[in-house]
Amino acid sequence: MADITRIYLIEDDRTILHFVEETLRQRPQWKLVGHSETFAHAQVMAPLSLADVFLVDLGLPDGRGEDMLRALSVSKPDAELLVFTVFGDESRLIAALQMGATGYVLKGCSGQELIDAVEQIREGGAPISPLLARMLLKQFRAGGQGAALGGGAAGNGWPELSDRETDVLKLVAQGYVNKEIAQRLGIGPATVSTHIKNLYKKLAVHTRVAVVKVAQERGLI
């Protein structure tokens, strides 16, 4: 992960702003480069920032956080979108993932848990609060993979993977993290992260576990 991580917070609750500011003191190399309290302000200012990670609340006073995620996924395709919200229901989680979120953390977590989520997301992971992860896993085991994770059983018409994407996929399946994959393939961690994001899109999933399972079902690994 890069030494400097730039974070932009989209949140109307000043208590959460102070919590994030206090948390960032534990990581001096991380910088809060912007803050928006409304959808309207974020719509203008967030795309202009150089943030690596956007922390997005879903309950904005003048708009839906899901719509903000969709806009940022288009205007800032290289940034990570981490939902930070009180909404712990499955429908909001799935909608956020479908709109481009690469992580989902519930408010009330500790500062260290938020730090861990940012670190994971910067390394190509998809952090999800344990309660929600268990919810998805339960659906996954019950055969609800398509609804919960965006996967599909049908293999017809799916995009083909490049040779490099296949190489990355095989190493992900073996449990290697992004830095280790980068070392083994002789490429940068950021490039590995890009390949993993492309795998998520092509296989229509949102987690490393799901990308491996769908790839196995399709005979890709």
Rank of each mutant, 00 (worst) to 15 (best):
I4Y: 08
T5Y: 00
T5F: 00
T5K: 05
I7P: 08
I7W: 07
E11V: 12
D12M: 14
D12Q: 13
R14I: 15
I16M: 08
L17T: 05
H18L: 15
F19Q: 09
F19H: 07
E21H: 08
E22V: 09
Q29H: 15
Q29A: 15
W30S: 09
K31P: 01
G34C: 12
G34I: 15
T38K: 04
F39N: 04
F39T: 09
A40W: 11
H41S: 14
A42Y: 06
V44R: 14
A46C: 05
S49C: 09
L50Y: 10
L50H: 11
A51Q: 12
F54M: 07
F54A: 06
L55F: 05
L55K: 04
V56A: 13
D57K: 05
D57V: 04
L58M: 14
P61C: 04
P61F: 10
P61I: 00
D62G: 14
D62P: 03
R64S: 07
E66D: 12
R70H: 13
R70E: 14
A71W: 02
S73N: 13
S73F: 03
V74C: 01
K76Q: 15
L81E: 09
L82Q: 00
V83N: 02
F84N: 04
T85W: 07
T85R: 11
T85P: 01
V86G: 13
V86F: 13
G88E: 10
D89R: 08
S91N: 10
L97Y: 07
Q98I: 05
M99H: 11
G100Y: 02
A101Q: 08
T102K: 13
V105G: 09
V105N: 04
L106R: 06
L106G: 09
C109R: 04
E113K: 14
L114C: 12
L114Y: 07
E119R: 11
Q120L: 07
E123G: 13
P127A: 07
I128W: 01
I128D: 07
S129P: 12
L131M: 12
L131H: 11
A133E: 13
L136Q: 08
L137S: 05
K138S: 14
R141P: 01
R141M: 13
G143S: 04
G144V: 01
Q145M: 14
G146K: 14
A148H: 01
G151N: 04
G151P: 00
A153N: 11
G157N: 14
W158I: 15
P159A: 02
E160F: 03
L161C: 03
S162E: 14
R164N: 02
D167Q: 15
L169C: 11
V172Y: 00
Y176N: 07
V177D: 08
K179G: 00
R184I: 06
R184Q: 12
I187Q: 08
P189Y: 04
A190I: 05
T191E: 15
T194R: 12
I196E: 03
K197D: 13
Y200N: 04
L203E: 11
A204V: 02
V205I: 04
R208A: 11
A210N: 00
A210V: 00
V212T: 12
R218F: 02
R218W: 05
G219T: 01
L220N: 05
I221R: 06
